[in-house]
Amino acid sequence: MMSKNVEKKYFAGIDIGASATKAVIIDEAKKIVGSHVCRSGADLAGSAQAAYDEALKQAGLKAGDVGLLAATGFGRNNFPAAHCTITEISCHSLGSFHYFPKAITIIDIGGQDNKLIHVDQNGCIMNFKMNRKCAAGTGAFLEEVAYKMDIPLEKLNGLARQSTQDVSLGSFCTVFTGTEILTKIREGKKKEDIIRGAFCSVARRIIEMDPLIGAVVLTGGVVAHNNILAEILGSVINKKVLVPPSPQLIGALGAALLVSAKKKQK
């Protein structure tokens, strides 16, 4: 099955994350021809299939046109249609290196966890870290902030951009930060400033993880929806932070690139 499929021209990657499922289809030139993002929910295989079907539709393809399909992410073992699985650490490094082929530090901020990966100039992983078992600095933290302040999640980015004053949220833990936010509200701080403070807190959690050596690349759903984060992180570390196109799709793209490279090896 594998040998027949590698003759085909398209390759797919499905990144089944804890919050969102992402599907990417690439052609032989490694160009994205179809993609889709949906919530993972409780039915991981169903979400993966739905994301894949939508990506195929967007590309104008049928499942039979796709040679190989790789699954990654938290639910990678839950999608039986996949020909192989690979961890999101490897996929994020492949996807990021595709856009920035040099020594890079990749920071992926997902819904439930953060990853920090050092890749050398050849695209090989030198080392990596995942955050501790805590929501601090992840998408879940921002969701909590939005909930506490009764603001729709998608409005956070725009509001933070209207901030005029620095508000610092210093706690390490999401629950403590929730209490801190209430204190700031009581003190009469503006919501725009508090929200920007929350993004600054995410940036601080990142710099605590590991030294950010070389060029820094930010990926994942959080930066995809909140581009202010790249600017804030850039100002904290004093260098420009690179963001690839469609940063939320980088893991799925990496998975697709992996199987397309398998074809080359044949």
């Binding site: 690979i86 961890t87 999101e88 650490i89 490897s90 966890d113 090989c124 992983i125 995942m130 078992k133």
Partner: peptide, 21 residues
Amino acid sequence: RCYSEEQTKTVIEAFVEQLNK
């Protein structure tokens, strides 16, 4: 209660993928 099986599996698998290169 202090252990995440999923996260640990991912970290170990990813480490082996790193060594495979």
